[in-house]
């Protein structure tokens, strides 16, 4: 298990380095545009040249990347070009909000999807058909259209929830709860059906395995067979789809945060993208990739724990 973990960690590290290099090259590719963007259209060529020198844009790309990487290792991701904020500061105030939103949503998605998918696989009949149709419908409605619908009805028309998030530094738990209820509902409704569908088919496949029949013949309780053997066998498939959804949600949260005016990393990403605030954008990409790597590592380790064959090979 230890060598398995080390191997996974190493491959995650390689991924991180590759993505950082690629994004750096991509973001700083168009160097001449950057200074003009900051200074505005009226800037003279001399001003632009001076700005480029100030930002180090006249240096070769590889050298700049290595500089960036060295200071990034010590936690210094540089400074925003448009505000006085340091990148790491901006990230540490924004990231927790987004993480709470995503984590709460994914926990609920996992619970509901497992219950719905398993029940559909075991009961079949009308319940199964409802889950199946629900999965198609859930797939067909774009998440942000659903979110707009929710905010229009429940926040704007009925006024049950604030239309603009009240989450702020030092805000109480109640502010978090009222601000995140609608967005979490929007995410859960949008994501739960797809994973329920995957879990359903995984449970059906597992229940048809021959060893399940043999376990039944041994007189074991149907509940024990389901909880210990069937769900354990179905778990890797469920974890895979849930981890893919988590990754998708890192992006999807950007739109959700915009709709519900939540001060998370998504809002920061949108303003930085509009302004061309490259250092912030770079910080966001790095933070996202690290999150993706952590989630994938967790899923790999969970699969190794669930299946002795994965662990030993």
């Amino acid at each position: 298990m230890i060598s398995f973990t080390i191997k996974r960690l190493a491959s995650g590290l390689v991924l991180l380095i590759v993505i950082c290099a690629l994004s750096y090259a991509l973001l700083y590719f168009n160097s001449s545009g950057i200074a003009r963007n900051i200074l505005g259209e009226q800037a003279t060529p001399e001003q632009i040249a001076a700005k480029e020198q100030e930002l180090g844009l006249d240096q070769p790309l590889l050298g700049r990347f290595l500089d960036w990487a060295t200071s990034a290792l010590s936690g210094d991701f540089g400074q925003s070009w448009f505000t006085t904020l340091s990148v790491s500061n901006a990230l540490t105030t924004r990231l927790p909000v987004t993480l709470v939103l995503i984590t709460v949503s994914m926990i609920l998605v996992t619970v509901f999807a497992t219950v719905l998918g398993t029940a559909a696989a075991i009961k079949r009949g009308w319940f199964d058909r409802v889950v199946q149709v629900g999965a198609v419908v859930g797939d067909a409605i774009p998440g942000f259209v659903l979110a707009i619908f929710l905010v229009t009805i429940f926040a704007i028309q009925l006024g049950w929830f604030p239309a603009v998030s009240t989450i702020a530094p030092g805000a109480g738990l109640d502010a978090w709860v009222v601000s995140l209820t609608l967005p979490v509902i929007a995410i859960v409704v949008n994501y739960v059906t797809a994973s329920a569908q995957q879990i359903r088919s995984a449970v059906i496949t597992q229940r048809e395995r021959e060893f399940v029949r043999t376990l039944r013949s041994r007189g074991l309780d149907e509940r024990e067979i389901l909880l210990k053997y069937v769900l354990r066998g179905a778990a890797p498939a469920g974890l895979t789809v849930l981890s893919l959804q988590f990754v998708g949600l890192l992006g999807g949260a950007v739109i959700i945060e915009q709709i519900f005016a939540i001060p998370g990393i998504g809002q920061l990403a949108v303003t930085s993208a509009v302004n061309g605030d490259i250092p912030i954008m770079m910080g966001i990409v790095v933070a996202t990739v690290i999150l993706v790597i952590i989630v994938n590592l967790a899923v790999d380790l969970a699969n190794g724990w669930l299946n002795p064959k994965v662990r030993t090979s």
Binding site: G248, V254, I255, I284, T288, I293, N296
Partner: peptide
């Protein structure tokens, strides 16, 4: 493993 919207931003 890349979130699409972040990349597009």
């Amino acid at each position: 493993s890349l979130p699409a919207i972040i990349v597009l931003l």
